[in-house]
């Protein structure tokens, strides 16, 4: 039985090298986790009071603007971060795909990297050797697997990483944004394999800014905002709230029907909404209907909740010192 239970979990990062005084000023920033200053060492509350229960067959999308805690939540779900307060209980073999560069050796061949990536994920060398033909076939890298990894393009690296994680039958697959680098045809193939995997006995949590990918892969979604779990429910509801418009609306009817009629037991709890810390839809979502047209241009004034991820510049500009630095920094 595969499941993840998170109860009142907090992830607090102590920032040992920061001056608390200068950090106090940044508390006014709206991007990133809440920065507490009541202690001697300043702390970034990257995740606050997360309650979540995921079960077998769930395919969950993870949305939220930069620094909202998506990556940190993925790391919490993978067991890399044990919560500073609260509890997590993870049952099942976890396979995280966060950063495609980590753990890869640029000078050795693709084959060797496949095996090493497998070792990282708890496989033995022998087990990986048995899977290598399957991976070679799936990734379509062919003879390229004998070339050193530094000759690979980003898309080829994504293929390799996806090939490994989908071949080892993980029970919990955690994907961070970045797999969008592959071409559409391969994505179609990977999608089938991922859905297949989840249907066999797994769970998928996928952080992405791309509506298209989310709609293809996920059935439910989590909206993270400022380190808090704002909403958890069916994908369409969450995306509508988050974006301020219904992304499914614009789809051609045939595609909508195809997405709706997706195989698999992903829709096991439709309509079940998690009571987030603030149950009401965020201020950004509230006036979303009006702002939808201008969203892409970055015009209008973004609601305090930040209702769009696509506008990049504005949002990420204020991100310094927030949860984003804590989650992605120190590489």
């Amino acid at each position: 039985m595969v499941s993840i239970e998170v109860q009142n979990a907090y992830v607090d990062f102590p920032i040992f090298d920061a001056k608390s005084r200068s950090l106090k000023k940044r508390m006014l920033g709206k991007v990133g986790g809440h920065i507490g200053t009541d202690r001697k060492v300043p702390v970034i509350e990257a995740l606050r009071d997360i309650n979540l229960s995921l079960a077998e067959g769930d395919r969950v999308g993870l949305v939220g603007h930069n620094g909202a805690g998506k990556t940190t939540l993925l790391r919490l779900l993978s067991g890399i971060y044990e919560p500073t307060r609260g509890k997590t209980k993870i049952r099942g073999r976890v396979a995280p795909v966060f950063d495609l560069g980590v753990g890869m050796d640029n000078e050795t061949s693709g084959y060797e990297n496949i095996i090493v990536r497998g070792l990282y994920l708890g496989m033995t060398r022998k087990q990986m050797e048995q899977r290598i033909d399957d991976i070679a076939e799936f990734t379509e890298l062919g003879d390229y697997l004998q070339m050193p990894l530094r000759t690979y393009s980003t898309g080829m690296r994504v293929r390799l990483a996806l090939g490994v994680v989908t071949s080892i039958d993980p029970e919990i697959l955690l994907l961070d944004e970045g797999i969008g680098a592959v071409d559409a045809r391969f994505l179609e193939k990977a999608k089938g394999r991922l859905v297949d995997l989840v249907n066999r006995s797994g769970m998928l949590v996928f952080a992405s800014h791309s509506d298209g990918l989310l709609m293809e892969l996920c059935t439910s979604a989590i909206w993270m905002d400022g380190g808090e779990l704002k909403q958890y429910g069916p994908l369409r509801d969450v995306l509508t709230e988050y974006k301020g418009r219904d992304p499914f609306e614009k789809l051609p009817p045939r595609k909508r029907a195809r997405l709706a009629g997706k195989p698999g037991g992903g829709r096991r709890r439709p309509g079940k909404k998690r009571p987030g810390p603030n149950g009401k839809p965020g201020p950004g979502g509230g006036k979303g209907g009006a702002g939808a047209g201008t969203a892409a241009a970055g015009g209008g004034k973004p609601g305090p909740g930040g209702d769009k991820s696509d506008t990049g510049g504005e949002q990420s500009g204020t991100g310094s010192g927030g949860g984003q630095t804590a989650a992605g920094g120190a590489q």
Partner: peptide, 9 residues
């Protein structure tokens, strides 16, 4: 540090 933050080992 990189590995520690990316793989639960």
């Amino acid at each position: 540090a990189g590995l520690l933050k990316h793989l639960p080992a």
